[in-house]
């Protein structure tokens, strides 16, 4: 564990909490892509199958349970409790276009052809693109509420910090994981355009609005 990894985990946790609080306090999930949230729940479910087979640390296990619980709580709020506020007309990304390629790739490029490893690899590939329905939704409506922007910024920072963590681990321990690193770079690159808009607009107190 190094400071970048911890920072990444905390940014991820912060993103999840921001989203839950936004939905809970405003009693609305307007502007949030349920499709992306389904993909994140699927990602955590596939990745943390090892929760009961591999014990790494109390920290790891607790974080896994928190991420899983938060992902399903978000789905519950969006699809059950505040279903009426869900903006499904703008959330039209086809999930199979992301799930099927991620599954296919996981079957071909993995560390080991076993259920737990293929599922882990699938979760890595799927997570890399899971935000696309959300970014697609923002581009379709042309704007995002500030709180949604903060959520996206925290979520993007998480994988960016993980990349720094991987560089650090490579030099300090000789550790690297090509699958996680390449997918992590793809994941972070997807946020670049958003990061630019966030820094140039939202941090200056303006609403995130895409140029017409």
């Amino acid at each position: 564990m190094n400071i970048f990894r911890l920072g990444g985990d905390l940014a991820h946790l912060l993103a999840i909490i921001i989203l839950l609080l936004k939905i809970w306090t405003t009693r609305s999930c307007a502007g949030i892509s349920g499709k992306s949230q389904i993909l994140f729940a699927l990602t955590f479910t596939a990745r943390y199958l090892d929760l009961f087979t591999n014990f790494v640390s109390v920290y790891n296990s607790v974080m896994k349970v928190v991420y899983l619980a938060a992902a399903y709580a978000t789905l519950y709020l969006m699809y059950v409790k505040f279903k009426a506020t869900y903006d499904h007309n703008h959330d039209t990304f086809r999930l199979e276009f992301l799930i099927l390629p991620a599954a296919g790739l996981a079957l071909i490029i993995n560390h080991e052809f076993s259920i737990i490893e293929v599922m882990w690899t699938f979760s890595i590939y799927l997570e890399a693109v899971a935000i696309l329905p959300q970014l697609f939704m923002v581009s379709k409506t042309g704007e995002a509420e500030s709180i949604t922007s903060h959520y996206l910024f925290a979520l993007g920072s998480y994988r960016a910090l993980y990349i720094v963590n991987w560089v650090y681990r490579y030099y300090s321990e000789g550790f690297y994981d090509m699958i996680a690193t390449l997918a992590g770079v793809v994941q972070t690159v997807l946020y670049c355009d958003f990061f630019y808009l966030y820094i140039t607009k939202v941090l200056k107190g303006k609403k995130l609005q895409l140029p017409a």
């Binding site: 990894r5 591999n54 640390s57 991420y67 560390h111 490893e117 993980y162 550790f175 994981d177 996680a180």
Partner: peptide, 10 residues
Amino acid sequence: NNHLLVHDEL
């Protein structure tokens, strides 16, 4: 053993 024990990331 699988790499997930060494990997230990979230």
